[in-house]
């Protein structure tokens, strides 16, 4: 089999990949890192990741507000929104929590079974939101280290 650019790219990025544990889907995230011009100056991925954490922060605040207002619809929309970007970056743990928020915002369990009790939904969302915040903080820390090391 011919050695291709793509292969070596992948190997290079996977080799450089720190262990983010189950926080990150390496295949997806390496695709992001691949778009950097160089490994030394990650001028694409680093601001992107920073943007993501800002976006996550904002979204969490909005979620807190929606939670206080018991606005399930809004929670679902916000969950979907952050799920999209976290999935794009391969941040699976955050994505999964967002999925929970989105589902219960629709008054559905994660399996898609109807959950008519609003209080249960809000409770599940509050839990997922808490998990998401913790995971996000932890991942942010790890990412900071990673990018600091790359420079």
């Amino acid at each position: 089999m011919l050695k291709t650019d793509e292969d070596s790219d992948d190997e290079r990025f996977f080799a450089n990949m720190p262990d983010f544990g189950d926080h990150v889907d390496n295949a997806i995230f390496s695709q992001i890192l691949e778009m950097d011009e160089s490994d030394q100056e990650r001028d694409f991925s680093e601001p992107l990741v920073t943007n993501f954490f800002e976006q996550a922060d904002d979204t969490f605040k909005n979620m807190d507000r929606a939670l206080a207002a018991r606005d399930l619809n809004e929670l679902s929309t916000l969950g979907h929104f952050l799920k999209g970007s976290s999935a794009t970056l391969g941040f699976n743990k955050i994505r999964d929590s967002c999925q929970v928020v989105q589902q219960y915002g629709h008054k559905l369990t994660v399996e898609g079974v109807s959950e008519p009790d609003e209080n249960v939904c809000l409770k599940k969302i509050a839990e997922a939101l808490q998990t998401a915040k913790i995971d996000t903080a932890e991942l942010e820390e790890r990412m900071k280290k990673f990018f600091a090391g790359a420079e």
């Binding site: 992001i32 778009m35 694409f44 976006q55 970056l89």
Partner: peptide, 16 residues
């Protein structure tokens, strides 16, 4: 695409 993160990633992918 409404999500700015996704916009950036897609633009990055397309540019690449």
């Amino acid at each position: 695409e409404d999500n700015v993160i996704n916009q950036k990633v897609m633009l990055g992918l397309l540019r690449s």
